[in-house]
Amino acid sequence: MRIEEDCIGKLAIDEDVLYGIHTTRALTNFPISTERTDPLLFKSLIIIKKAAAQVNAAAGTLDVRKSRAIVAACNSLLMGEHQDALVAPAIQGSAGTSVNMNVNEVVANLASAELKTIRVHPNDDVNQSQSTNDTYPTAGKMAALQALPPLKQALTFLIKTLDAKAHEFADVVKVGRTQLQDAVPTTYGHSFHAYASLFRRDLARLTRAAADLQAVNLGGTAIGTGLNASPYYRSHIIRQVNQLIDLQLKPAEDFIDATQNCDVLVAFSGAMKGLATDLSKVANDLRLLSSGPQAGLNELHLPAKQGWFIDYARKGQILSFQKSLIKLPFR
């Protein structure tokens, strides 16, 4: 065991862990759930730490030897090493401080181990010119931007597939219904074209919301004024992050506004929730239209898929429960 101390007091830390006292406190302070922080969020924070070390060294505010050691530590983490040290829980308090300090402490200990005779401090060195209030929201936006391309690719494929079905079924007449009551004739071509139009709108909404995520407050530090960050750092940090990962980040028009308001993230969340709702609605439609085959509508024939079953015996009866299609869009 090793003893570390912060403003609260001393704490014994396991000798073989790379994180420190702040992370250890977080693990006991927030035992709310077992959900881990998303790896993309950790990755984005590590990229920010690497860029900050490079810019701070160029600004003359960080020892070059420490900068190189920090960069080397970040590189090892980005290559997938020491992932067991990134343990800060996803559900926490204090605006992401626990996750930020988890990264700071791990990077600092790795860098110190490389330098041997020079200690790298998690706050003074790794977190230099930064605050959780600008690194954490920037990392969150970076993580969302990295996760989005596969989703957009899948959504584009879905739209093309629905368009193809609309063409294939253009002349297949069906009953149009309102509140499940027979209304007027229509075609399955119209139905599938409507689905495609719905998801085209979702794709456009996601694209617009993602563009707003590219404006970040990195360099604004605690409240957006840039206190304790050098002018050189403030003017170069976002550019350096873009050198490390091409997300086309740009400085927010108003750093104080970007630091204290989350409307951009709310809008992106809303676009994602809208997509999930629309996927659920279409899945429900298809499930209903394929119901049967004897006592349901049985208008559509969906490809056979292996279901998930839980079988158990109770009073001589065998009961089976199959996950409904409604849950699939949210997986």
Rank of each mutant, 00 (worst) to 15 (best):
M1W: 10
I3Y: 12
I3Q: 08
E5K: 14
K10L: 09
A12R: 11
A12W: 08
E15N: 08
V17D: 01
G20Y: 03
I21M: 05
T23S: 08
K43T: 05
K43E: 09
A51C: 08
N56E: 08
A57G: 03
A57I: 13
D63G: 01
S67I: 03
S67K: 10
A73V: 11
L77K: 08
L78Y: 12
M79F: 10
H82G: 03
A88Y: 03
G96C: 08
N102C: 05
A108F: 03
S112L: 08
L115S: 02
L115W: 09
K116L: 00
I118G: 09
P122A: 05
D124C: 05
D124N: 12
Q128D: 03
T132Q: 01
T132I: 04
N133R: 06
T138K: 00
T138L: 03
M142Q: 01
A143P: 04
L145E: 02
Q146S: 15
L148E: 09
P149A: 09
L155E: 09
L155W: 07
L162E: 07
L162M: 10
D163L: 12
A166V: 05
V172S: 12
V173Y: 11
K174H: 05
K174Y: 02
V175N: 10
V175L: 10
Q179N: 13
Q181E: 06
Q181F: 13
T187P: 01
H190E: 13
Y195S: 10
Y195F: 15
S197G: 07
L198V: 11
D202I: 02
A209E: 14
A209R: 06
A210D: 05
A211Y: 06
N217Y: 02
T221M: 01
T221P: 03
I223D: 00
T225M: 01
Y232M: 13
V241N: 13
V241I: 14
N242P: 03
D246N: 14
Q248T: 12
K250Y: 11
P251S: 10
I256K: 05
S269V: 10
A271Q: 06
A271E: 06
A276F: 11
A276K: 11
D278C: 06
L279K: 02
S280E: 00
A283K: 07
L286G: 09
S291H: 13
G292S: 13
H301K: 15
G307N: 12
G307W: 00
R314N: 01
F321P: 07
K327C: 15
